[in-house]
Amino acid sequence: MKTDSKPLVYSMAVLVILMLTVLLTACGGAPPPPAEAGAAVESSAPARTIQNKGSDTLVNLALAWAERYREIRPDVSIAVTGGGSGTGIAALINGTVDIANASRKMKDKEFEAARANGIEPVEFVVAIDALAVVVHPDNPVDRLTIDQLADIFTGRITNWKEVGGNDAPIILLSRETNSGTHVYFLEEVVRKGEKDNEDIFAPQTLLMPSSVGITSELRRNPNAIGYDGLGYVTEEEKMIAVARTASSPYVLPSVESGSDGSYPIARNLYMYTAGEPSDVIAEYLDWIRGPEGQAIVAELGFVPLPQE
């Protein structure tokens, strides 16, 4: 008779919890209708909270901006969250953020989806990022062309010896598909920037939920290759010098080579607002794009915008 009364109590507790959960999700799960959210953004003069979400590449930068900006404008609070460019843009489309951070341009499809919800996204370039291709420090390979990188990441080259390395299988690492870095790398490296190229990442590519995932796998796997924003490369990773073609010079990523355009995989980082930004948001964006904001960009290992 050891199990007579207890299960009843347990199952009752479980039922109650289940009911509460369902009630809570039923109440809290419904997102605000987009039109309403759009209106809130337009009339946000009294509201001083800016919701800022998106790119994980930009998240540290966005946090640094938000913290510094609070010292200047204590009345404005900025809530920054990551999740990936796709996540931020989806939130902008669904009307739940004021500013979406993106490490890639919004796609036409996403613009259409936003317009269907009554939101006209406005684009701002806020920094430049050089994308570093990284390997384990023990890997003898230290330079590759864009063509070789494309062959490696589509799975046409599967052994390091084909590009001058050890006889070992290549382990491909990538960010998840919701990462703007993933999409940028797909377009500029895997597809070599060719519009009609339909190549995609090899199916055996490991998709990591975070930059940390890539770093930690690279640290322990001498056969792995990955890519990440220059600001996120750690001492335990070796950066690869990249050349546009076999005949052009191999260039290591750095702030200089990113800003003078000699490094081939550098991209703009964006912020998107839902419609023309209101006063508070416009001031914030002006500050970010001004000298103070761009100084922070350089501090964090990204490439600042050229200042007129």
Binding site: G83, G84, G86, A90, E110, T177, N178, L207, P209
Partner: peptide, 19 residues
């Protein structure tokens, strides 16, 4: 071999999709 499960796919990609 590395694999991707159904549950992990939902969790990883839910955040990015437009409704």
């Amino acid at each position: 071999q590395p694999v991707r499960t159904m549950t992990a796919t939902i969790a990883a990609e839910m955040g990015e999709v437009a409704k």
